[in-house]
Design a protein around this nucleic acid. Structure first.
Lengths: 209, 209
DNA sequence: GCGATAATTGAATCAACATTCAGATATTGA
DNA sequence: TCAATATCTGAATGTTGATTCAATTATCGC
């Protein structure tokens, strides 16, 4: 039966593709985009250079796919865990804690982001940077909506939700960043508590505990 | 008298060099590092390509010089204005307000940072990214010291200075960033007040006003 | 097993620019 | 004005590495 084989082939194709992405991620994370060659990726994934072009249109496409896929997963995870909580306070808390938890699991990905290189796209339109900015705006919108709903329930009386959302994301990113670049990776969980305490006192006038 | 001429030549050399840097800054800010060619910079500054190499060792050196000079000035400005204030609260306030004020004057520079591209340095060691990270650490250290001194005077009782410093810088950067990428540049001054209010309430238990 | 189809290979090609440097031009001191 | 020196010029060079594609190998249905 032809379709059965087709399905299996499809699956195998995707597995190989995913493997190439995984290898590429590792290399991009250590060397950055431009210092990484297609030859290296081919080598690491056990394919010939030419074969990579059956899976991706080119180096740029490979890089974009990698980043796009990861960032989407990351966003989904944050939203899911946040919306699973019942109260506004818990939702905010979930955002911070999930973000920090993801830092460990997605470490390579974040290393790539820190080494960020805007890609030289001679004419192509909305490029990767634009996509990342959209993503950031979407994230801010989400946090804002969580805070706004909280206000409906009487929380966070002291602030404009948009402002607080930007501030919160800024703090999260700052802690994440300084953790990523620090040599001694002290557990982030403690930091999460300190951050939330600071934030809740700031927006509510009293600490979380 | 030979030295007189030497001095004038020296000065003219530096002026030309500064002009090249200014033109390059503008172009880097709109197109990013790799999309900018030496030919363009030469064109914009009215020199031939070859001449650029009398002023800078190469494209990379030009870019590094640009970023290093700006960031040093930026840091100086922040420290100066902060230390000019007397109380800890005013010092923190000065950091935020100066940072925001610089955003307008150094806009091109910050656009370059947003379009950040790690440069592919085949073998050279401490690269630009490392320098920027050091700078970030230095900035954090400074803010931390301001907060720590404040604590000696009884302010900010609720937090660890390092944690609060990271949080504060994170918030500043977040507001700066969202201002830079927003279409309608609403005045940042209002944001400064909101930010400080949030922060002081967070670290002190009461708002700034 | 066999022809047909799909997947894989990697050496050769190609484009893009940074950089160089031999010659042209300008500036200097006399 | 003139030789000496400093400065500038931009076409030609060189390097790097992504991409291509004709040839090879694997997999398929029968």
């Amino acid at each position: 039966m032809a379709t059965k084989i087709t399905v299996r082939k499809e699956r195998e194709f995707l597995l190989r593709r995913a493997d190439i992405l995984a290898q590429a991620e590792r290399i991009f994370a250590t060397k950055g985009y431009s210092a990484t060659t297609m030859a290296e990726i081919a080598d690491a994934s056990g394919f010939a250079i030419g074969s990579l072009y059956h899976f991706f249109q080119g180096k740029e496409h490979l890089y974009e796919t990698l980043i796009t896929e990861k960032i989407d997963k990351f966003q989904d995870e944050i939203r899911r865990s946040s919306l699973a909580a019942d109260t506004a306070l818990e939702r905010v808390s979930a955002i911070v804690k999930t973000h920090f938890a993801m830092l460990t699991t997605y470490e390579n990905f974040f290393s790539i982001l820190i080494k960020w290189e805007g890609i030289h796209q001679k004419d192509k339109r909305p490029n990767l940077l634009e996509k990342l900015l959209d993503n950031y705006r979407g994230y801010t919108d989400f946090v804002e909506s969580v805070l706004r709903e909280g206000q409906v329930q009487g929380e966070f009386p002291n602030v404009e939700p948009r402002v607080a959302a930007i501030a919160l994301i800024g703090m999260i990113d700052a802690f994440a960043f300084s953790w990523l670049i620090s040599a001694n990776r002290e557990p982030l969980q403690d930091r999460a508590e300190a951050l939330l305490d600071l934030f809740f006192r700031g927006v509510n006038g009293y600490g979380k505990a």
